[in-house]
């Protein structure tokens, strides 16, 4: 009886200590996350007038949402474009990073160097740097000019593209593939973290498993599908979520650009909040549905 009481005492003390440890998070979460979230949700239903010293929201119901979808000429187009771009890019990033991780998991000379190079974009292509390169209208015009000259030249991929396109079978699918091929640079610089996460997963698979499979007559290709993929399948989920979230936060995202323009230039807080809530809702829905689908296929080895 005495002992029982003491144990609960320790447990209680540990529970209090645990709460003390995460206290900064709780406070920060309530003040800087929940409150602004609630406020921006409220504002999205309002027409916000910013005056001197204070701001006065007037309740307007679904006005802003209706405006975003029906009145605003750009929003629905940008949203659907960004979402489809996100899907295609994220898929490409997953495949690319898994492929690179498979290669980097093998032993060869200069592996550390190659790994360092692949990780370099995580450091260099974050935040403002990627924004400066894509935001710039001047750069866009240069790109257009360069693109024209490149089109007049002859390139192997260009020729293949032409042939496949004129063949007329599955033109849409080919176009998507070529879009990915064209944006291989974007894919490569966005997959640094994913490569490392896959690599860490690959390194935890014990070699005895491959040896056993080899003795049983498994080819490399078969053991890739039967051993490697199931063993790292939980990392696919992590990487998928990370990729989508990373994509949402990039500063060259056009929806985000429109929202921040609405805030800083038009000073229309209500409309901006409504747009960001729509965007946020769509992203959460996508993350939820896709992770549900992926988690069905995840295999846990215990």
């Amino acid at each position: 009886m005495e002992r029982q009481k003491k144990l609960t005492g320790l447990q209680k003390r540990k529970a209090i200590a645990g709460y003390l440890f995460i206290l900064p998070f709780i406070v920060g979460f309530l003040v800087f996350m929940i409150q602004p979230l609630a406020q921006s949700l409220y504002m999205s239903f309002c027409d916000v007038q910013v005056g001197a010293g204070s701001f006065s929201p007037q309740f307007r119901g679904l006005f802003n949402y209706v405006r975003a979808f029906t009145v605003d000429p750009e929003f629905t187009r940008l949203l659907s474009e960004e979402i489809s771009r996100m899907f295609i890019n994220s898929l490409a990033i997953m495949v690319f990073s898994f492929f690179v991780a498979l290669i980097l998991n093998q032993k060869f000379r200069g592996r550390a160097l190659v790994r360092a190079v692949f990780f370099l974009p995580v450091i260099l292509s974050s935040g403002v740097i990627i924004g400066v390169e894509t935001d710039n209208a001047l750069m866009a015009s240069i790109e257009a000019a360069v693109g024209e000259t490149a089109a007049s030249g002859v390139s192997v991929t260009g020729a293949i593209e032409e042939i496949l396109k004129t063949a007329g079978i599955g033109t849409r699918a080919f176009e998507t593939v070529f879009e990915i091929v064209d944006s291989i640079y974007d894919v490569a610089i966005a997959s640094g973290i994913q490569i490392i996460i896959f690599l860490s997963g690959l390194q935890t698979i014990s070699t005895s498993m491959y040896e056993a499979a080899d003795i049983e007559g498994c080819t490399k290709w078969e053991s890739l599908w039967k051993i490697t993929l199931p063993m790292v399948s939980s990392l696919f989920l992590v990487n998928w979520i990370y990729t989508i979230v990373d994509f949402c936060m990039r500063s060259d995202n056009e929806v985000i650009e429109k929202i921040s323009e609405e805030i800083t230039v038009q000073i229309n807080y209500g409309f901006a909040s409504a747009m960001s809530w729509v965007y946020f809702g769509v992203v959460i829905a996508i993350i939820g549905i896709t992770s549900l689908i992926i988690s069905k296929g995840v295999y846990y080895y215990d």
Binding site: M33, P36, C248, M249, S273, S276, W277, Y279, F280, I287
Partner: peptide, 11 residues
């Protein structure tokens, strides 16, 4: 998973 842009208005 909340993009900071979502709450940027109210922040």
């Amino acid at each position: 998973i909340v993009p900071p842009q979502t709450i940027s208005t109210s922040l």
